[in-house]
Design a protein around this nucleic acid. Structure first.
Lengths: 192, 192
DNA sequence: ACTAAGCGGAATCTCGTCGTCCACTTGGGA
DNA sequence: TCCCAAGTGGACGACGAGATTCCGCTTAGT
């Protein structure tokens, strides 16, 4: 591959990651091309179709998230702190990572590919472990699970284009509100 | 208007309300027609275009929500209880009301029409009053506002079609998690 | 200097919907 | 009962948005 071509490939994946983060998984190819400063033709030279490009982005994201989760787990002694830190990281405003969580949603679209499935499964398992620990430590409500966290991450970070503007601007704020509601003792007794 | 036509008109609005609740504000006219058991032509006989039909649904919803809010306010002595009850009502699973909240989102699409704007504004004001009261009573965090509640209602009830299935199935569960996080004292001190 | 790899982006193709149209029913008044 | 204007359904044509293709022009690299 020619040097300039390799350079473009990088630009494309980065641009795609950004655009997807901003406009959701359905961002048009043309928007990505424009951001990367290339023509759509160039996108198709490297990726057979849109799905392939998005998958590449997903791949990239999955690894990034896995690293972030591990880093958070390492840095915080208590599991709750690690969860808090990770969620905050994943939804940081301004971060392209916004729909980093995209790596999570397409359990169908992306995890289907064997290469991704493994990484994703591992990630989920380690996240689940963190949740179990937090619950064992008595810092997290027992009636919520990793799945809840993952779903919420999806809700607030994928499809930012249809979130009310203030929410899209700072999903972390809402996710943290959510986490506060998940702390041990936060549950409203039924009948309230 | 002929009796059968009037009957159809009712069926159409009801069907539209259901379909919109399930598939979001962008539900295709044909889906609505099918649900109502009529042809698309009949929809267009009563409403000049899609926007008019959706507006009719919005109109219907706004009034329903206003009533529900007042009912909740009346039933609960404390403001917090009223808020909790209203949110639960608005997001009750199985209720067509899912995107009842639609009445809320299109601050642009619907509230623009003078007739709706008034009702909506009144509704928001009464809701805001409830929030202020809850905060004054010391049962709600001071760092959240009605807007937050409204946005979240939107997030969880409009566009159900792109929410992860478990979330779409019971948005109330997540909204209540959120409310738990909004209770006075739930806030995590910064630095945690 | 030469040429195959690369490139841009206009043109084309696909889809999903909207909204129209008209031949065919039917309610309900005479 | 008869009649016909009101009402109906759903095929059909126009569109807009976006994906994908194509090809003449450019340029890295020998």
């Amino acid at each position: 591959m020619r040097a300039d071509a390799r350079r473009n490939l990088t630009k494309i994946v980065e641009a795609a990651a950004e655009v997807v983060a901003e406009r959701g998984v359905n961002a048009p190819m043309e928007a990505i091309a424009k951001r990367a400063g290339v023509g759509v033709g160039t996108l198709y030279r490297r990726f057979p179709d849109r799905e392939a490009l998005i998958a590449a982005v997903g791949h990239h994201y999955i690894h990034t998230m896995a690293e972030a989760l591990d880093a958070a787990a390492l840095r915080s002694a208590d599991a709750w702190g690690a969860i808090w830190e990770f969620i905050s990281w994943a939804a940081a405003p301004g971060r392209t990572a916004l729909s980093t969580a995209l790596a999570v949603l397409p359990a169908e679209a992306i995890a289907e590919r064997p290469e991704f499935a493994g990484v994703r499964a591992g990630w989920v398992e380690r996240f689940a472990e963190l949740v179990r620990r937090a619950q064992a430590e008595g810092s997290m409500r027992p009636d919520v699970g990793v799945e809840d966290l993952i779903h919420l991450l999806n809700v607030f970070t994928c499809h930012p284009e249809q979130l009310p503007a203030p929410v899209a601007a700072d999903p972390g704020r809402y996710l943290r509100l959510m986490l506060d509601g998940m702390k041990a003792g936060a549950a409203t007794p039924s009948g309230a």
